[in-house]
Amino acid sequence: MSTQPSKPDNLKIIRRLLLTVVCMFAFGFALVPLYEVFCDLTGFNGRFTDGQAAANTKAVDTSRTINVQFVTRVNKGMPWGFEPEVRSVRVHPGETKVVNFLARNPTGGNMVAQAIPSVAPGEASLYLNKVECFCFNQQPLAAGTETAMPMQFYLDPEIPEHIHTVTLSYTMYDMTQNMTPDALAAIQPTAE
């Protein structure tokens, strides 16, 4: 047709638009790591990278005391017992504390679990540093045994004045089905 514009011109636009489509599809997936970075930076949703914090070198601020509560849950469909040794501790910002969590596998089979942390208020997650935590790794537990799992943490003295209570929640998820039978069979009862 006489008025058909020159082809390359169309192609150029189409190519750019298709590139945009591909980029936006990739962007959809890129939102996953972006979201994580965003959550880490802002404490959004009380999620935080469960990385190991550096050992505590902060000065202790004895002028303030913050109540740290522990909430433990096991996901439904999982029969483990999972409790903190204490329900809450009072700490000064900058002070390092160790809290033990007890896990019990009442079933007749070896199991592996993963604890997923969450902090409320979300903002507090920015100031909660874990030096050592069972939640960094999966927890194997032999049939019918129990174990004490330590968690060592301190609150950054920079923590905002208006935060008086920090709740740290762990939800235990069953990871057994992701394990090979050999790996499961190799789980030994812990020395304790």
Binding site: N75, K76, G77, M78, P79, T107, D174, T176
Partner: peptide, 14 residues
């Protein structure tokens, strides 16, 4: 019934 079934709606009623 006691332990439920992971990854489904079946809960541990234990």
């Amino acid at each position: 019934v006691v332990n439920g079934k992971t990854g489904t709606s079946m809960q541990a009623f234990g």
